[in-house]
Amino acid sequence: MQMVSQVMTRDVRFVSPQESLQRAAQMMDEMNVGALPVCDGDRLVGMVTDRDITIRGTAAGKAPQDCHVDEVMSSDVRWCFEDQSLDDVMQRMADTQIRRVPVVSHDDAHRLIGIVSLGDVVTKASGRPEDVDRTMEKISTPSEPDRSPAGTGGGSPAAGAAAAGGTGLGSAADAGDTRAPEIGTPAGTDAAGASGASGGTASTTGTSGPRTGPRP
């Protein structure tokens, strides 16, 4: 049975909650990724995507150089552990249509130690290629509209939150919770398609920590 530790990308680059949206966007551009973990020190506290920056930041009239990441990020982020079964993570990715899952430590701090992307699954998963194909197909299936047509007044606040940035694996607010976490950030929060997600990783080193990111 293949484990998350066998396919995950380590030394992941992250952004601080107090970093500006402009800097977060620059980091995404440098690494050619569409999402970054948000960490306070090395503790995972959220995820920020290019869609968060666009919808919660730019569209809301916030100045990229003045607005902080914690104003637009998703704090309800799901994660997994490196000793979890890859099959389990793949199933959860498919069920929730997510393309990347942060990997955290088992201690109460839930320190960020890596990330599993759809690209990692496609290029590194061994055996049963039909499972990989099924995961990609489910993640790539169009989801329900993020919001109701203008003027209808339909849609729930939860749906709106998903449209703006989405929720993820286990809540960062529950970092002290030792129960087995769930995984992911819904695919609707990421502008990139599955084909882009399978394009590998980018890795460098920078001021915000080691930089490694799955291609969006």
Results as ranks from 00 to 15, higher is better:
Asp76Cys: 09
Met47Arg: 06
Gly41Glu: 07
Thr205Cys: 08
Ala173His: 08
Asn32Ile: 12
Arg179Phe: 07
Gly165Arg: 02
Thr207Asp: 10
Pro210Ala: 00
Gly61Thr: 01
Gly213Arg: 12
Ala187Phe: 08
Arg134Ser: 14
Pro157Ala: 01
Ile98Gly: 12
Glu182Tyr: 10
Leu21Tyr: 01
Glu182Thr: 12
Gly151Leu: 09
Asp76Met: 09
Val12His: 05
Gly165His: 00
Pro214Ala: 15
Ala202Met: 09
Ser203Asn: 08
Ile53Lys: 02
Gly206Arg: 14
Glu71Phe: 06
Val77His: 00
Asp177Ile: 10
Gly206Cys: 10
Gly119Arg: 03
Arg128Phe: 06
Thr135Val: 06
Ile183Ala: 15
Pro129Gly: 07
Val12Pro: 03
Arg10Tyr: 13
Arg179Trp: 13
Pro214Met: 10
Arg147Gln: 14
Leu44Trp: 02
Ala175Trp: 15
Arg51Ala: 08
Val33Phe: 04
Ala192Ile: 10
Val45Met: 03
Ala59Met: 09
Asp52Trp: 05
Thr58Met: 13
Val72Met: 03
Val45Ala: 05
Gly127His: 01
Val48Leu: 04
Asp83Glu: 07
Met8Tyr: 00
Gly206Thr: 13
Arg100Ala: 15
Glu30Leu: 09
Asp70Trp: 06
Val121Phe: 10
Ala25Asn: 14
Ala172His: 00
Met90Tyr: 00
Val12Trp: 03
Glu144Gln: 08
Val103Arg: 02
Gly170His: 04
Ser140Tyr: 06
Gly153Glu: 05
Ala25Glu: 08
Ser140Leu: 08
Val121Trp: 05
Pro37Arg: 01
Gly57Tyr: 06
Thr207Ser: 10
Arg99Ile: 10
Lys124Tyr: 07
His110Tyr: 05
Thr212Lys: 13
Gly153Thr: 02
Thr96Val: 12
Ser126Phe: 07
Ala194Met: 11
Val103Ile: 03
Met8Gln: 04
Arg128Ala: 13
Asp40Thr: 09
Gly209Val: 03
Met31Trp: 08
Thr135Gly: 04
His110Thr: 06
Ser140Met: 07
Lys138Pro: 05
Met93Ser: 01
Pro181Asn: 02
Gly155Val: 03
His110Trp: 05
Gln84Cys: 11
Ser126Lys: 11
Arg100His: 09
Asp50Trp: 14
Gln97Ala: 03
Gly213Ile: 00
Asp177Ala: 05
Asp83His: 04
Val132Thr: 05
Val104Ala: 02
His68Val: 10
Ala164Met: 15
Ser20Trp: 03
Arg179Ala: 10
Ala173Glu: 07
Ile113Pro: 04
Gly160Pro: 12
Leu112Trp: 04
His106Thr: 11
Met8Asp: 00
Val12Ala: 03
Glu30Arg: 03
Asp174Met: 09
Phe81Ala: 09
Val7Arg: 00
Asp87Phe: 14
Glu19Gln: 10
Val121Cys: 05
Ala162Lys: 15
Asn32Val: 13
Asp83Cys: 01
